[in-house]
Design a protein around this nucleic acid. Structure first.
Lengths: 206, 206, 206, 206
DNA sequence: CATGAATGAGTGTTCATTCAT
DNA sequence: TATGAATGAACACTCATTCAT
């Protein structure tokens, strides 16, 4: 019942109660705000707790580690993205699905661009965590389903295609976000270029 | 005449002497090695100095700040890339230039993939620095010249194209590096897909 | 009439009800178990409460302080020893009484050797507490009665003899316990040596 | 050359320089003073550093851990005792050697009784450390040599005799120290009783 | 110029204790 | 009375940076 492993990455208590869930959510959102307002420099547990309106002790009641807070935030964002993406699987056309996916991904990442960028950095720094990977695996799975559309070239099924394309999407939007771009439409158009261009070029041209 | 502000980000002294230049280089390379061997966790000035075979004091004689060391390393890598790229400008064909550029960029980033990845992270974290930007601007400039090739669609001149494409190149190679890929040929092929696909798709298709 | 000072070391309430008494006992035994299982490192009020099957709040309903729990445990152990010793007073022979005392003391301390050792440490660390001292005074009193046996040298009545001998008994058994010894007979024999040797040697030898 | 184990118990740098050695000694003595003045409650690294007239950072330059400071102090005391005991080995008579040993041990422990007592507690709490054990093993060795004296009963060689007797010595003096006794002579006499009594009684009496 | 011992603000984390429910 | 979430002071430890030698 009791895990003595100090490196356990799970919340110390499952947020079953109403109050707890609210506190957990408050802490996670506070972490997001701190990240946006003060960057990685100001991102420390005391600041997070204060912003969340709770004590450090409470923070540690729900998260065993500072990194666990970060992971929860990463996970939350991944889930948010998932929700905007979940129904794509039902679509017939690979082309249309991809367009929907891209639109959602761009919208998601452009909503809080600073946060998205810093979380990408943190996610890269953090040791891989199963809880988080479950989410990104689901995103990858959805994306792969899009690529399996009959109207797309068979080469889209190449094993690295999905990871390449997801990296491309992220990179373009991150870069745009860093440059302060906010025009969603223009960005979607460019990401479409990158994705469909990659797929077309990849296919043996006649 | 010279800014003495303690928050200046420039090296405290221009390495005029032979000895100094060697020391500076040693420190920068030591920083690279630490980053590769111990990651961002083990990346601290004492470790860097020790690895470089100098005292921390000496390190601070040449660099006003830890971040300045990192910036110098980023700059060094940019210059290394520059050297492999500098002669591309002379080429006639945009297509061929791009291919050369991609080959060089992939080779560069795949030579020390861990270092490249961590430096990308650090570069994103660091406040923008003129000295560093000079280099990346030069790289961007060369890349833009490639895009101006007469055999490429006019749309390649769109202002965001260059930054999009550079981001794409970096993203694909970083991702591949993180997954442990080492096949340069395959990677070059995929990056070509992404770049030429982007350009072609971007152009109004008949 | 009663001291309400928050630093009072007495239980907040006398456990009058059946329920209370059971809870108090559960908490004390839980403390013992934690101490045995996790040492002083893991010995904290939350762990104790959890092990006792009550909330921390309840723990603090019955004990004003963590140290109060420890003292209660020390006291309980002292009382346990007392019970095995109480009837010794009736014996005629000082020699026999001492042997009985030693046997009981060794048996007591060897029953839960880890607990005994850690409690010795805690007892040494704790500020002297009347409630606890009452018990150890009773033990000392019984022991002193043994020493007053007519068949023992008069020097046994020297004021420090009792405290010296009790310390000796404790020390030998603690040490043995730490070394993992479990042979009660052998230990009793050695403690007898120490005690009777001390007494004999203390007496002016002819 | 570099130990990455965080649980390494060795000083981070060998105190080779004059300055370092002085600092190390100052820190150790400060630890002793804090222990005497404020007990285990006030015994924390900041207090130790302040008392030593150095910064916490310096403390951690020489000791990897708070516990390492404690161990160094324990070791220092053990060495002090050793110095007062080292020449005993040369003596002929077991009886005389033992008397000398006891005199030294009592003097040692009575010089700073509070410190001695708290260090006994800490030593018991600390995980066994080779550096420290080397010293206590040497003390035990000397003591065992005393017991091998030809004028002592052969039973003194019983394996547990040494550890029993050392425990007895410590216990009596600790107890006396806690009671505020300062009469060295009286204490030596009583410890002699205990030790020689144990040995005599242990031997089969005619 | 080089050294590396010294600094001390800052950070993550724990845990005895309280108090609203 | 019981609960357990909340508190926050306290602590161990790190590391960028300085400065006397």
């Amino acid at each position: 019942m009791e895990s003595d492993a100090p490196n356990s990455l799970n919340p110390r208590k499952k947020p079953g109660q109403r109050r707890s869930a609210a506190t957990v959510a408050a802490i996670i959102e506070a972490a997001a705000r701190i990240l946006e307002a003060s960057g990685l420099e100001g991102y420390n547990t005391n600041a997070i707790a204060e912003r969340a309106g709770v004590s450090v002790g409470s923070l540690y009641q729900y998260f065993p580690t500072k990194d666990a807070v970060t992971r929860a935030l990463v996970e939350r964002e991944a889930i948010l993205l998932m929700e905007e993406i979940a129904d794509i699987a039902a679509l017939r056309s690979g082309r249309t699905s991809l367009e929907r996916f891209i639109k959602a991904a761009v919208a998601h990442q452009l909503r809080r661009p600073v946060l998205a960028r810093l979380l990408d950095i943190e996610e890269a720094r953090l040791p891989p965590d199963p809880e988080v990977e479950v989410q990104s695996d689901r995103v990858t799975e959805i994306f792969s389903q899009c690529l399996r559309g009959a109207d797309l070239p068979a080469t889209a099924l190449a094993p690295e295609a999905a990871s390449d394309l997801l990296a491309i999407i992220r990179a373009i939007v991150d870069t745009a976000g860093r440059h302060g771009e906010t025009d969603r439409g223009a960005l979607v158009r460019r990401v479409n270029c990158a994705v469909f261009g990659y797929l077309e070029w990849q296919a043996p041209r006649a």
